[in-house]
């Protein structure tokens, strides 16, 4: 059974038909990437999975259970870790407080401590800055913090929205390394990216979204060689 399955999901913003029947699956242990231009509906897809938007039609199943209509905090409890676009950490809270909030659904303080140390081990840079305010971290560190915060809830699937946005090329590399490392540790990831080249390098499979519909899908290596994808997203010349 796939970890996540979307079946012809439709989303409207008022009169605008943002998602026109999106279907996709993510299997356990995969990295699946969702590519597409601005406004194609990538972020909308993630927001409807985590319950921040309610789809008008369609089915979203988490390990077989339909989660459409559940409030976001219930969906989090079922194991969806959403890392929103634009590194939205809590800027006035410390690194530790940010991470602790990631485990909000857990009441056992000792367990929170344990996970905190685990995440800090994964991100030594954050460990050095554990008492610093989140807003004072560099862009790359903030992205690490946002990812670490989502890891705190030990999600069944992690939704990553544009993790490389606005980062220097070196940092982009290291973020993708982190993503790969997390995946090797067993985290299932749905990755939304504009940087198609890097995304296809780390992903197992990919989908291409265009104005609210999936137009292409397949193994990442195949997509990377698809002439249409190359022309539209990889900047290849004729």
């Amino acid at each position: 059974m796939p970890v996540l399955e979307l079946e012809s999901v439709h989303v409207y913003y008022g009169p605008i038909h943002a998602l026109r029947g999106v279907s996709l699956t993510v299997e356990r242990g995969e990295i699946v990437t969702l590519l597409g231009a601005n406004g194609a509906g990538k972020t909308t897809t993630l927001r409807s999975i985590s319950g921040l938007i309610r789809p008008a039609r369609g089915r979203i199943a988490l390990e077989g259970r339909n989660i459409v209509g559940l409030p976001p905090h219930e969906i989090v409890k079922l194991g969806v870790g959403h890392v929103p676009e634009g590194r939205r950490i809590f800027p006035r809270l410390s690194v530790e407080e940010n991470l602790a909030l990631g485990a909000f659904t857990i009441t056992d303080r000792q367990e929170i401590r344990r996970r905190l140390e685990e995440v800090l081990q994964l991100f030594p840079r954050l460990a050095e800055r554990r008492r610093q305010q989140g807003g004072t971290l560099s862009g790359g560190e903030q992205q690490m913090l946002a990812i670490g915060r989502a890891l705190m809830m030990q999600p069944r699937i992690m939704l990553l929205d544009e993790p490389s946005m606005g980062l220097a090329p070196v940092l982009v590399e290291s973020i993708f390394e982190v993503i790969q490392r997390l995946n090797q540790r067993g985290t299932t990831i749905l990755l939304v990216e504009q940087n198609a080249r890097m995304a296809l390098e780390v992903a197992h499979r990919g989908y291409v979204l265009e104005t609210g519909s999936i137009v292409l899908e397949g193994p990442a290596a195949e997509l990377a060689h698809d002439p249409k994808v190359q022309a539209a997203y990889l900047g290849a010349r004729e």
Binding site: P72, H73, L101, F104
Partner: peptide, 25 residues
């Protein structure tokens, strides 16, 4: 307390707070 942390998260960023599993209502 837990609810205090939830309040602060909502104050800082309501969307993300919800994505952390905080019941906004």
């Amino acid at each position: 307390s837990r609810i205090g942390r939830a309040w602060m998260a909502i104050r800082e960023d309501e969307d993300v707070a919800q994505a952390m599993g905080i019941n906004r209502v």
